[in-house]
C-alpha cells in the first residue's frame, strides 16, 4: 500500500495532510449522533410518562391541572425561536456578523421567556397542591417536561457563550461550526416540544 501513497496530501486546499479530516464536519456528525441519543433519552421518559400517567393516586388528573393558554403561548414562542435561530444561520452564511448576533439575541430572549412561562406554570401547579411527590403522574410529568426545560436552559447558557465568541472573533470556521451546531440543537428542542405538547398536554386535556 505504501507505493501509492505519495500523491496524497497535495490536493487539499489548506495544505493539511490527508489523514487530517475537516474537524467541523466531524463535529457536525458527532453532534447529530448525540442528538439521536437524546431522542432515545426523551423516548424513555415518554415511555415512562405514558405508562404511569393514569396513576394519579387520588391527586389531580391531567384534565384538572393543565392550563392550556400558557402552554399555547410557550408553544408559539418556542416555534418562533426555532425560526429565528434559522435566520441567524442565514445571516451567518451571508457573512453578516451583526445581523447574526441580533438574531441570536432574539432567539435567546424567546427561549428565556419560554423558560419563564414554564417555571411560572410549575409554580402555579405546586400552589394548587400538585407537586413532585403527589403521584406517579405528577412525578413523571415534572420529570419529562422539566428535562426539556433543562435542555432549553443549558442551550441558553451555551448560546450566550457563543455570542461572546462571535462578538470577539467574528465569523471563523470554528465559530461557524458552533452556530450551526447550536441551531441544530435548537430545532431539535422545538421538535421535542411538539411531542410534549401532543402527548402530554393535548392528549391530557382532550
Amino acid at each position: 500500500m505504501a507505493q501509492a501513497v505519495s500523491q496524497h496530501g497535495h490536493d487539499h486546499a489548506h495544505g493539511h495532510d490527508h489523514g487530517h479530516h475537516d474537524p467541523q464536519e466531524l463535529k457536525m456528525l458527532g453532534f447529530w449522533i448525540f442528538l439521536i441519543t437524546d431522542v432515545v433519552l426523551f423516548g424513555t421518559l415518554f415511555a415512562t410518562y405514558v405508562v404511569l400517567h393514569n396513576n394519579t393516586a387520588g391527586g389531580p388528573t391531567a384534565h384538572e391541572i393543565f392550563e392550556m393558554p400558557g402552554v399555547i403561548a410557550e408553544t408559539f414562542i418556542l416555534l418562533t425561536s426555532s425560526f429565528t435561530s434559522g435566520l441567524a444561520v442565514l445571516a451567518m452564511n451571508a457573512g453578516k456578523v451583526k445581523q447574526l448576533i441580533s438574531w441570536l439575541v432574539v432567539t435567546w430572549i424567546l427561549g428565556a421567556s419560554f423558560i419563564f412561562l414554564e417555571v411560572d406554570e410549575f409554580i402555579k401547579m405546586v400552589h394548587e397542591g400538585f407537586n413532585y411527590g403527589t403521584s406517579a403522574f405528577a412525578t413523571s410529568f415534572f420529570t419529562l417536561v422539566g428535562t426539556h426545560g433543562l435542555h432549553v436552559s443549558m442551550g441558553l447558557g451555551w448560546m450566550l457563550l457563543i455570542m461572546i465568541q462571535l462578538a470577539r472573533k467574528g465569523i471563523t470556521d470554528v465559530t461557524r461550526g458552533k452556530v450551526n451546531v447550536i441551531s441544530l440543537y435548537w430545532h431539535f428542542l422545538d421538535a421535542v416540544w411538539i411531542f410534549l405538547l401532543s402527548v402530554v398536554y393535548l392528549m391530557g386535556v382532550m
Partner: peptide, 13 residues
C-alpha cells in the same frame, strides 16, 4: 442513524 434511533424509540415506547 436517525431512522434507527426512531425505530428504537418506537420499540421502547
Amino acid at each position: 442513524a436517525l431512522i434507527f434511533g426512531l425505530a428504537i424509540v418506537l420499540v421502547v415506547v
